[in-house]
Design a protein around this nucleic acid. Sequence first.
DNA 1: TGTCCACGTCT
DNA 2: AAGACGTGGAC
Length: 350
Amino acid sequence: MTHRRTTQVTRAPQTPGLPPVPQARVADVQRLVIDWFSRNARPLPWREPDASAWSILVCEVMSQQTPVARVLPRWREWMRRWPSPADLAAAPPSDVLIAWDSLGYPRRALRLQETAAAIADRHGNQVPHEEDRLLALPGVGAYTAAAVASFAYGRRAVVLDVNVRRVLGRVFAAVEHRPASLTAAEKRWAGALVPAREHVEWNAGAMELGALICTARNPDCDSCPLADACAWVAAGKPSDPTVVRRTQAWAGTDRQLRGAIMKVLRTAHDELATSDEEQAVSISTHLLTAPTAELTADDAEALARLSEPIRKAIAAVRDLDADGTRTARLIDDLVRDGLASRSSTGIRLP
DNA sequence: TGTCCACGTCT
DNA sequence: AAGACGTGGAC
């Protein structure tokens, strides 16, 4: 501990629920996080010094909503195939969606390709440095723009994801969670905590701490470098009764069924793309949407000609919607949103 | 086995 | 500005 006066506070604006923080505490916490990160950072490829800004942007978009372990193999494949934005912009969307695999939220893949085209066309194939220009790219919001500015270009940015918000909230405000929506006031408050130097290490370290130690459910405070400095620990780790954990409905939702339809299209395209014929990669809409009772012997033969993975993917769709009416409607939506396209013989990836 | 969880962007 | 958006692994 420093022996500076602990009554000295930052110039952070007064923010409801977010206390002013003594400067000395801030300096201690910054040092602890940065030192911890230097010893405990996972050796991820996008953290290598030679990682391109493009590779970092791709990683950040993939990592939205998705754990590192699932991102890693797809990110490697993407970087091998599309090492620059222009490479991705030139790829067929079907290849992009297949390479996205089951990362989830396939719209992110399409937006990433739109972003690649924008960078190739308007930014000389170079990922922009400025947060406001990054923010203008499709699929890039406040978090991703700040993360790229910080991690790819070393700019002093306020990187606030749910991990950082949770760590800062616990350490400085003794609260278990932050409310769902990120306000401008909270961003200003957090911005006052970003050090003038080593801000990249601070940003990355706070995220890493939130991901590995200061987790939402079972924080490993025994291993935490901030345990002695943590207001939440000092307060006895109070749980916040106002926090309602949202449990998204999943079973029976359109999202679930859409995912199953997309899996059919990916599987079919991947396995059947041996010729240029539309027919080869299309799946008869009828096989997906006909009520089970109306499937004919011809339909059964058509199914039998397909490979087992495709049949299983189709069966998954039919299990979720034996009636076929929802499937038909969702296929319309997918086509409208550019995730699928119609051909003379059925439905396929765009 | 299922239930819970992750949590940024867009509209 | 609350809700939609996908998936698989942890518990």
